[in-house]
Design a protein around this nucleic acid. Structure first.
Lengths: 152, 152
DNA sequence: GTAACTGCAAACGCTTTGCACCAAG
DNA sequence: CTTGGTGCAAAGCGTTTGCAGTTAC
């Protein structure tokens, strides 16, 4: 799906949930639906103010709440903190993150069923959720390894 | 390894790193090395003050910093927040958490190599770290499913 | 028209820092 | 004796809340 299509879909979803489509919300949806990197509230505030200058940081937090509650975005957990957001995984997708430039890719991790079965039997747990993330360096950052982080 | 043995090992490690073995640090090590549940700084403060009454919350934070830096404990990430700590995984262990009572178990998840290989080739990423957690209900909580959470 | 949303300012809670005193080595 | 650790109080920072005005529907 193209980013613009995706943001249309998100806006429809939000509207169907009873939320009003305001300028700040549209700006934030546009950014998040089109981003291949996880973004923090302040990132969204800075980017959002380019198209919607008066927007406040509080509005970003409130939009993130709606988007997360509607299942459209998810929090990204990293060792340095858990303050970043990206579109939600579909189905059995999992996140792969570049530790240098922040690029993210979703991959299919479909073959964990056996592991779950073994673990749930061995430890007598009813497994309800799982969570897999991979961290590494993307091709570009691996080749240009120079110790300095790139900007978004 | 028995909990008391484990805390001896941790204290040796910490001493070898140049840290001094003080009463509050010993108390915190004892608690964390013996716990099968993830604990928050305030949990540690409350538990620690039973054996070391004057201990301050700041000291807990400073001890956690040392323990995390030494690789003895790790942060536990959950949807509600990432403020809990537990002993570090050894080798290829991963965490399995009960969403009701908070009990945690480490399991071996050794067969992810193939997945990493496929993903790293397909997306041209050099994978350096991975992270897998399972969430569910332990046998006891699953049987007593009554909607209410139990205390530690 | 009315309820949800907005931006601002203030409050909040968790975590870190500055400091004078204390104790491990 | 030295220097890292301690508890306290205050500061810091990301996030949430209260509120009066605004806007989507």
């Amino acid at each position: 799906m193209q980013p613009s299509q995706l943001s249309e879909t998100w806006l429809n979803t939000l509207q169907n949930q009873g939320y009003r489509l305001t300028a700040p919300l549209k700006a934030i949806v546009e950014i998040l639906a089109g981003s291949t990197r996880a973004l923090s509230p302040v990132d969204l505030y800075d980017l959002g103010r380019k198209s919607t200058p008066g927007m406040g940081l509080v509005t970003v937090y409130r939009a993130l709440e709606k988007l997360e509650e509607s299942g459209l975005i998810q929090r990204v957990h990293q060792s340095e903190g858990c303050h970043m957001f990206i579109r939600s995984a579909n189905g059995h997708e999992h996140l792969l993150l570049c530790q240098s430039c922040g690029k993210t890719v979703f991959f299919e991790g479909d073959d964990l069923g056996d592991l779950f079965k073994r673990v749930s039997e061995k430890y007598e747990f009813n497994i309800q959720e799982h969570w897999l993330q991979l961290y590494g360096l993307c091709a570009e950052c691996y080749l240009n390894k120079d110790g300095q982080k790139k900007n978004i």
